[in-house]
Computed example of a mutant assay.
Amino acid sequence: MQLQPTGGDYSWILNLLLWIILIFVMMFYGQKLQLYSTLREIETSLYKLKYIRDEGRKIAIETIKEIGKPQVDPASRVDRFLEYFTISPQSMDPAGIVWKLEHILDVRDDRLKDEVRLLAPAADEVQTNNLENTLEAAMALNYIYKVVRHYYLLGKKTLSLYVIMQVQMILPLVMREAEAYASALKAFAYGQPIGDGIGALVAAKLMHGHEVRKIAKDCVVATVPIEGRIAYVVKAEGPGGNVGKPGDAIKTIIEENEGKITNIIMIDAALKLEGEEVGEVAEGVGAAIGGPGVDQFKIEESILKYRIPINAVIIKVDIGDAVSPMRKEIFEAADKAIERIRQTILERTKEGDKVIIVGVGNTIGIGQ
């Protein structure tokens, strides 16, 4: 009797063929499959970015209509505003670059404020500053969306895995930044304090109840007795969205006192590292101030002239916290920072000395 082989006896051949086919497919088409999968992932994030961008535009327009009472629909002018750009000065010859940059930034600031006044004629000065911040956040969202879209379309057009992979690798960080700006929009629209304003809040707490005078563009100062010392407490003029010009303020105070300043203490928010706690307070030396560097340059020039020591107190925040409504942990860190300031004053100055305390940051929602 002859036995017929069953189909199951040759199943290993089928498995082998499937593996061979799979290997060949991955060899010749694996990169393309990965490319299309990555493109799909970027496309999903791009749709989310577009939604965030459109919501930002919508919030900006609604806020302008509510506060500014424009006679015509501001949508078209807002769209023009969102495409606004600034060209950095030429730096091939670095001599004088700081003053060129400052001039460009001043022109930009004046131009943006003029645009806001045209968009919202009924807005007062505080509301104008807040609306400017709102529109700048919307502008940032628009720019982020357009840059990601550019590289997505470029990668799709060229089918370059290297272009697409670069976008994919930084996309989580880009999305975090976009979500932070989305939160900032609402804070700016409603005039709420943000995490970046913690330095201004510390200064406001110190100067509360004392006479305040204007010292530089969008900056105020109060003379406050602290531990037997004379403290000149500086912050941006609030409660509108302002960062002021602390570099000019410090320079003016130093010149008014003929350089007889014993110490300068600067307080600002700083980005924390992963694993660090939000609201953690740290001390160091140097000019604690971000931005394009103009104010830091001015401060360093002023202190170098008179050899004035400069100390820094920072409050650590996440990238999302910096432009989002101020969290409880950050708010509570203000009192800890004040204790550090008092301790620094006691340890590094004598009774009767003069010190400058500068609260750096956007003072939106924070008065004097």
Score class of each variant (00 low, 15 high):
E301Q: 11
I59F: 07
E66D: 15
A182G: 11
S88C: 03
T86D: 03
G199K: 05
V234E: 02
E339D: 07
N130M: 04
S91A: 08
R108A: 11
D321N: 15
E283G: 07
A203Y: 04
T134Y: 01
D268A: 06
K217E: 12
I20Y: 08
R307D: 13
K32R: 13
K235F: 03
T63S: 06
T63A: 10
M326I: 07
V25D: 13
I253C: 05
D9Y: 08
A288G: 04
D54V: 07
I357Y: 06
L161V: 09
V323M: 10
F24A: 15
A180K: 07
Q34L: 15
H208K: 12
I265W: 06
V78P: 04
H208V: 07
E179D: 04
D248C: 00
V147I: 06
Y143T: 11
E301K: 10
E255N: 04
T158P: 02
L14V: 13
N129G: 14
I308C: 12
L304A: 13
L22A: 15
R77M: 12
A288L: 11
T223Q: 04
D73P: 07
V174N: 01
K272Y: 11
R57L: 12
R229V: 10
A178I: 09
D196W: 03
I338M: 01
G247I: 01
G365Y: 00
Q166V: 09
A282M: 13
V126G: 03
V78N: 08
P292F: 10
I97A: 00
E102D: 11
I289Q: 02
G8W: 04
G96D: 00
E125H: 03
